[in-house]
Each structure stands twice: as structure tokens, then as C-alpha cells.
């Protein structure tokens, strides 16, 4: 009888990675989550959340590497793959070099890759 009830599929609970580098990043009280988020009280309801590590992983997908449609050619700023870009080497060579996509090796892609900033 009761087994005729429709099944619910199992889904993993969404999580978010928060990296704590120093004690200052810890919340002030025990009812807060590091990073300030309680999923039950996310303002604005459900949102599409991605962490840095996930976003960086998406960068290596082939579809993320194709040039965007209608990219304006702004010298020194964008590098659309035009013939001009090849022809005009002296000018665009540098810009192209800046865009070599470094596929993040999967370990370093995460938060360990953060740099120390000293300002």
C-alpha cells in the first residue's frame, strides 16, 4: 500500500565552500555560517550559486573557449580572432598572449591558488 506512493529521488544537499584563512573571517557568533550564509535565510530565495573553484573548472570546457559572437575589436583590449589579428602581429601579438588560457590544474584551481596580498 504505502509503497505505491510515488518515489522521491535523492538529491545531494547544496553546499558552498568557504575558505577561512584567518580567524578574522570567522563569524561573530555560533548561529552564523562562515561567509555569512545560512541557506535557510538566503535573501531573495533560491539562487544559482557557484564557487570560484567550480567556475574555474568550467573555463576548460571546449564551449567556454570559442570566441563570443559579435566581440568588438578594441585594439589592446579585445582580441577577436580575425585575419587582422594575424596580419597585424606587432600590435596584436601581445594581446593574444595575454589570453592564453591556462587550464587550471585541478588541484591548484581551488582556493589554494589564492595569493597573499599585502597592501
Amino acid at each position: 500500500m504505502s509503497e505505491s506512493n510515488h518515489k522521491t529521488s535523492a538529491k545531494s544537499i547544496p553546499t558552498r565552500r568557504v575558505v577561512i584563512n584567518s580567524v578574522d573571517l570567522m563569524p561573530h557568533d555560533y548561529c552564523s555560517t562562515p561567509g555569512g550564509t545560512l541557506f535557510s535565510t538566503t535573501p531573495g530565495g533560491t539562487r544559482i550559486i557557484y564557487d570560484r573553484k567550480f567556475l574555474l573548472e568550467c573555463r576548460s570546457s571546449p564551449v567556454a573557449k570559442t570566441p563570443p559572437r559579435g566581440l568588438p575589436d578594441i585594439p589592446g583590449v579585445t582580441s577577436p580572432p580575425t585575419k587582422d589579428a594575424i596580419k597585424d602581429k606587432a600590435h596584436n601579438g601581445e594581446a593574444l598572449n595575454n589570453n592564453v588560457i591556462k587550464t587550471p590544474d585541478s588541484k591548484a584551481a581551488g582556493d589554494e591558488a589564492q595569493f597573499e596580498m599585502d597592501i
Binding site: 568550467c58 567556454a64 570566441p67 563570443p68 566581440l71 579585445t78 582580441s79 580572432p81
Partner: peptide, 26 residues
């Protein structure tokens, strides 16, 4: 200048990868 709009993670990377990094702007 508008460079372009995107709606997905992958579309973002397409733009980002074809733009110089800010540190290389003049």
C-alpha cells in the same frame, strides 16, 4: 563601449578569455 552580454558561465569565459586582463591594459 559595450563588449557584450552573457547568460551562462561558459559564455562569460568566452568573453573573459578574449579580453586582456586589467593588469595589461594601458
Amino acid at each position: 563601449k559595450q563588449i557584450g552580454s552573457f547568460a551562462s558561465v561558459e559564455q562569460f569565459w568566452r568573453f573573459y578569455s578574449h579580453m586582456v586582463r586589467p593588469g595589461d591594459l594601458t
